[in-house]
Amino acid sequence: MDALKSAGRALIRSPSLAKQSWGGGGRHRKLPENWTDTRETLLEGMLFSLKYLGMTLVEQPKGEELSAAAIKRIVATAKASGKKLQKVTLKVSPRGIILTDNLTNQLIENVSIYRISYCTADKMHDKVFAYIAQSQHNQSLECHAFLCTKRKMAQAVTLTVAQAFKVAFEFWQVSKEEKEKRDKASQEGGDVLGARQDCTPPLKSLVATGNLLDLEETAKAPLSTVSANTTNMDEVPRPQALSGSSVVWELDDGLDEAFSRLAQSRTNPQVLDTGLTAQDMHYAQCLSPVDWDKPDSSGTEQDDLFSF
């Protein structure tokens, strides 16, 4: 819950932080000083300027060897085509990944977070970031790969997607708890209302004896509580940590079903599988986004697919 609360507080303090972009060759504004600060901008989305290598189908939802083989196929196909790589912007948030063309600003792909089953910074092609997700059109699994400016960037994108998945799962947990509370309150309110109706004398007997209905007592009954809980029953509950912020979080049926399955089948359902080692994760978390744009010590960066 700490990640969720800190993310909400950060967004309320400075929503404009989320509009910064990394990996864009110096076009961005001043960047936060450390990885923790940038992680807090996830709610509205972190932007990464990358190059799209392509996509291939895979048979399993996750796995280092599986993704490595898929990336190898994608890279080989991209090299064989001889075409310049498409420059894209990857927007990562707890909602998922939005992929747009840098030149036309046209939407290429919009992947809900619950469809993503794996992401990684490839070991062999260490400047490549990739994720595996279920197609929104059918049940097939797709591996999408992107060329980053350097290994640090690939690791940073991988960690960002993993963190977005974690925050999304926490949102789901909060929403589920809130819905259970509202359902319980609604049920209790309905029981109270039913009890009051059972003990209320029939209207005919009131008229016969000349008694008047006590409207004041009726007004004191917990009807307002019942209506408050039943009027918006169809509205999706939102985490309290975000009250007053500009973010509107809505959970669709697909996300609810997917996270429910994860909660039942996995020990740590909030953790998205990645190909990063503990050492890689520690190294990337210690980086400032400013470091992502620094040239690798191995030599001059080449803006070309064939540089790796």
Results as ranks from 00 to 15, higher is better:
residue 38 T to P: 09
residue 32 P to A: 10
residue 253 D to Y: 15
residue 97 I to M: 04
residue 214 D to I: 12
residue 290 V to S: 06
residue 286 C to E: 04
residue 110 N to L: 03
residue 132 I to G: 07
residue 112 S to H: 02
residue 13 R to V: 11
residue 85 L to H: 15
residue 271 V to I: 08
residue 196 R to G: 02
residue 169 F to D: 01
residue 43 L to W: 05
residue 295 P to M: 06
residue 199 C to M: 08
residue 79 K to I: 04
residue 247 V to E: 02
residue 304 D to M: 09
residue 294 K to D: 02
residue 83 K to H: 02
residue 198 D to N: 05
residue 124 M to H: 09
residue 62 K to R: 06
residue 198 D to F: 12
residue 200 T to K: 09
residue 266 R to P: 01
residue 268 N to S: 03
residue 9 R to K: 02
residue 219 A to Y: 10
residue 269 P to Q: 01
residue 242 L to A: 14
residue 118 Y to W: 14
residue 192 V to P: 08
residue 247 V to M: 06
residue 189 G to H: 05
residue 52 Y to L: 11
residue 232 N to K: 10
residue 150 K to T: 11
residue 137 H to Y: 07
residue 166 K to M: 14
residue 128 V to L: 15
residue 231 T to M: 06
residue 42 L to C: 10
residue 69 A to F: 03
residue 197 Q to I: 05
residue 86 Q to R: 15
residue 282 H to K: 09
residue 41 T to A: 08
residue 233 M to F: 04
residue 270 Q to V: 02
residue 302 Q to Y: 04
residue 26 G to W: 14
residue 286 C to L: 13
residue 78 A to Y: 05
residue 290 V to E: 06
residue 173 Q to C: 11
residue 123 K to D: 08
residue 37 D to G: 05
residue 32 P to Y: 10
residue 39 R to H: 04
residue 215 L to D: 03
residue 274 T to G: 02
residue 237 P to S: 08
residue 296 D to R: 07
residue 185 A to G: 05
residue 164 A to W: 11
residue 59 E to C: 09
residue 204 K to S: 12
residue 132 I to P: 14
residue 160 T to E: 09
residue 104 T to H: 05
residue 210 G to C: 09
residue 237 P to T: 03
residue 280 D to G: 05
residue 264 Q to H: 08
residue 153 M to A: 03
residue 242 L to R: 12
residue 56 T to P: 07
residue 140 S to N: 15
residue 146 F to M: 01
residue 236 V to T: 05
residue 253 D to W: 05
residue 179 K to W: 13
residue 9 R to L: 05
residue 287 L to Y: 00
residue 305 L to M: 07
residue 203 L to S: 15
residue 56 T to F: 05
residue 18 A to I: 00
residue 100 T to D: 14
residue 98 I to Q: 00
residue 266 R to E: 01
residue 181 K to Q: 02
residue 274 T to R: 01
residue 19 K to H: 15
residue 53 L to S: 07
residue 171 F to L: 05
residue 66 L to E: 00
residue 222 P to I: 09
residue 302 Q to N: 01
residue 231 T to P: 04
residue 116 I to R: 05
residue 51 K to A: 00
residue 149 T to F: 08
residue 53 L to Q: 15
residue 305 L to A: 08
residue 165 F to A: 01
residue 99 L to A: 05
residue 157 V to G: 05
residue 80 A to E: 14
residue 173 Q to F: 11
residue 238 R to E: 02
residue 230 T to Q: 00
residue 11 L to H: 04
residue 251 L to G: 05
residue 238 R to A: 14
residue 194 G to F: 04
residue 175 S to H: 00
residue 198 D to K: 13
residue 142 E to M: 10
residue 265 S to Q: 05
residue 197 Q to N: 04
residue 130 A to V: 08
residue 136 Q to L: 11
residue 262 L to C: 04
residue 211 N to K: 13
residue 93 S to L: 13
residue 138 N to S: 11
residue 39 R to E: 12
residue 186 S to Q: 08
residue 208 A to D: 07
residue 199 C to W: 06
residue 82 G to N: 03
residue 194 G to L: 01
residue 36 T to Y: 05
residue 62 K to V: 09
